[in-house]
């Protein structure tokens, strides 16, 4: 079909074909990806930490709790673990929380095992609704055998806004 269409019309038709093949390639890639996502995610913050959903999302498999339950667990002596980097922990954290930065999980294995022995109920948190370190940490805690690890979705932001106890400094275990 040489020169059948006006060059501009041909460009638009070709663009549509490229778009269609590209979309198909994307769908096929996602179907076979080890990090595949569903067609529609869970991005509404009112229902928890936003995530693409699906079994490869950080939020998969963890139970999220709200402020009221976090407070109740705090009063009942659950262990709070701060999943943020140690520097952020020093600047302020939930009173009595221990620091287990998610990205340095291996360095903190001793703490993790101690937490598991001491009290079974563990509450992981990070900055707020839009961080996923707490979810990643909870997943790692589950893998380490601490089955009752839950995620306080609102994180430090919601905790301090509600006027609940916060403290600064190194704490016992910060490296």
């Amino acid at each position: 079909m040489p020169q059948k269409h006006h060059p501009l019309v041909r460009s638009v038709i070709e663009a549509a074909v490229v778009l269609a093949i590209g979309s198909l390639a994307g769908v096929v890639n996602n179907a076979f990806s080890s990090h595949s996502i569903p067609c529609v995610g869970e991005w509404d913050k009112t229902y928890g930490v936003p995530s693409p959903g699906g079994e490869h999302a950080a939020t998969h498999g963890n139970r999220e709790i709200g402020l009221a339950e976090a407070r109740r667990l705090f009063e009942n002596g659950a262990v709070f673990v701060d999943a943020r980097p140690a520097g952020e922990y020093r600047e302020g954290h939930v009173a009595g929380a221990i620091s287990i930065p998610e990205d340095e999980f291996r360095l903190y294995l001793e703490e993790v095992l101690r937490v598991g022995e001491e009290r079974p109920m563990v509450v992981a948190y990070c900055r707020g609704m839009e961080c996923d370190e707490a979810h990643l940490l909870a997943g790692r805690l589950h893998d380490a055998g601490i089955n009752e690890a839950v995620v306080f979705a609102g994180g430090l932001t919601e905790w301090s806004r509600a006027g609940l106890p916060v403290e600064k400094g190194g704490g016992g275990n910060v490296r």
Binding site: V18, L19, G22, S23, L24, A25, G26, V27, V28, N29, N30, I37, C39, P52
Partner: peptide, 8 residues
Amino acid sequence: AIVLPGVE
């Protein structure tokens, strides 16, 4: 997120 990289 699924389609855009394929098109690129």
